[in-house]
Computed example of a mutant assay.
Amino acid sequence: MSQLRTVLLTLATLTVLGAVAGFATVLFGLFNTSARSGHWAVTDWAMHTIFENAVALRAPPEAEVPDDLSDPALIELGARHYDSACAMCHATPGTSGGATIAAMVPPPPQIDRAVTPWTAAQMHWIVEAGVKMTGMPAWPAEGRADEVWAVVAFLTAVQRGMTPDDYAAMTAPAAEGYCAGCHGAGGTSRAPRLDILTPDYIADQLAAYRSGARPSGMMAHAAAKVPASGDAELAAALARLEGPAQSVPADPAAGEALAARGNGRVPGCLACHGPDNRNPRIPSLDGQGEAYLVDQLTLWRDGARGGAERAPLMRAAAKGLSDADIAALSAFFAVR
């Protein structure tokens, strides 16, 4: 019994001393936070091992990986966002990030190396969740897995050997300005046409993106580049912007009856978005991109879309739609 008491007393003493040492380290700044000293080798190993295991544990199942990651339009959408929001740390294919980025602790891996060990599902989790203690942020908006998949589509293209010339051609600035890179005539069909929308509606959406009322990591980043006082002027210019070319749906007629049909107290799509719409704050859907409409209707159905004056009505209208219904409606409006 005496020996047990001695062991317990020793453990208690060591615990108290450890707590005092830890408190003193925090209170008196004894731990050197300078990035010049870097991490111990064992710290690097522990952090990277924890990171790898965390990704393996939490990445979505491979069955959830979309089938269209090789879609050039989706790759371009992801590449353009990456070029604006991520390339400053991870550089671009075939280039380095420079001396300042290399001095970070830990340094962000160059993009060609960064994508090497991961599956598409694992990269999705990394981009969406971010990585603590590395400077890698989480995706700026929750519920936008579709946007994250666009970035993953680009990253998988890098894995397949994207060249510097390929990247430069894909992310080349548009003559009409930054927004036209995605929304202009030479942009990506995964971005919406703006020439069929009113300046009032576009200005409303810019404000909603900036405030977070309409969640979007891509558009929150883009909207932050423009002061709120410039929304009206920018919206007027964007409404005149010729939109990207769109593919022609295979079966546009399948959604016609669905677009006209209401659901209880919820009117059919054409009641608000049809040719008789005169409300400048309700978007026209005629001629909008099919893939974009699929994404937006899915977000409405799943409760992840906001930023609209009639958001509750749209959520109710989309709530019961199946994937087949969404595909049919999107094809119908894309060719009207």
Rank of each mutant, 00 (worst) to 15 (best):
G268I: 06
G264W: 04
G186T: 14
H221W: 06
G212H: 03
D200W: 14
V151L: 13
E147A: 02
W139T: 02
K225C: 04
T163Y: 00
C179H: 12
T188K: 06
Y209Q: 06
V151N: 04
V148R: 00
A223C: 01
G187A: 14
S216H: 00
M136W: 14
A254R: 09
D166H: 06
A175D: 13
S216L: 03
A254V: 10
R160H: 07
L270M: 13
A213P: 06
V266M: 06
A203E: 15
D166V: 01
V266S: 03
S189R: 15
S229H: 05
L197H: 07
M170T: 09
R265T: 11
A208C: 06
E142C: 04
P227G: 04
C269R: 02
N263V: 05
G243L: 03
G268R: 07
G262T: 11
G187I: 06
P173K: 14
I196R: 07
A220D: 07
P215T: 00
L258R: 14
A259C: 10
G217P: 02
A271F: 10
T134S: 11
M219I: 07
A271M: 09
D251I: 13
H273A: 05
G262L: 09
P249I: 09
A213L: 11
R160S: 08
D146F: 01
A168N: 11
T198C: 13
N263R: 12
T171P: 06
G212C: 09
T134E: 09
D165A: 15
R214K: 11
A271T: 14
A237Q: 14
T156A: 01
G135N: 10
P249K: 04
M133L: 15
G255C: 09
P275R: 13
L238Q: 00
H183E: 04
H183G: 10
N279G: 06
T188H: 08
A175I: 10
H183S: 11
L155M: 13
A237E: 15
M218H: 14
G230R: 11
R144D: 07
E176V: 10
P199E: 12
L258T: 12
D251F: 15
S216R: 01
P252K: 10
A157V: 00
V226S: 02
P227D: 03
A191E: 01
P227F: 01
I202L: 11
A223R: 00
S216A: 01
C272K: 01
I196D: 10
A145S: 15
A224S: 13
L206P: 04
A220I: 07
A236V: 04
A175C: 02
V151M: 12
A222S: 10
K225E: 12
I202S: 08
V248C: 03
A185D: 07
R265I: 08
M162N: 04
P249E: 04
A245G: 10
P164M: 03
L206K: 03
H183M: 07
G243A: 08
D166A: 07
A237V: 05
L258P: 14
R240K: 15
R214S: 12
C182G: 09
Q246I: 14
D146I: 03
A236P: 00
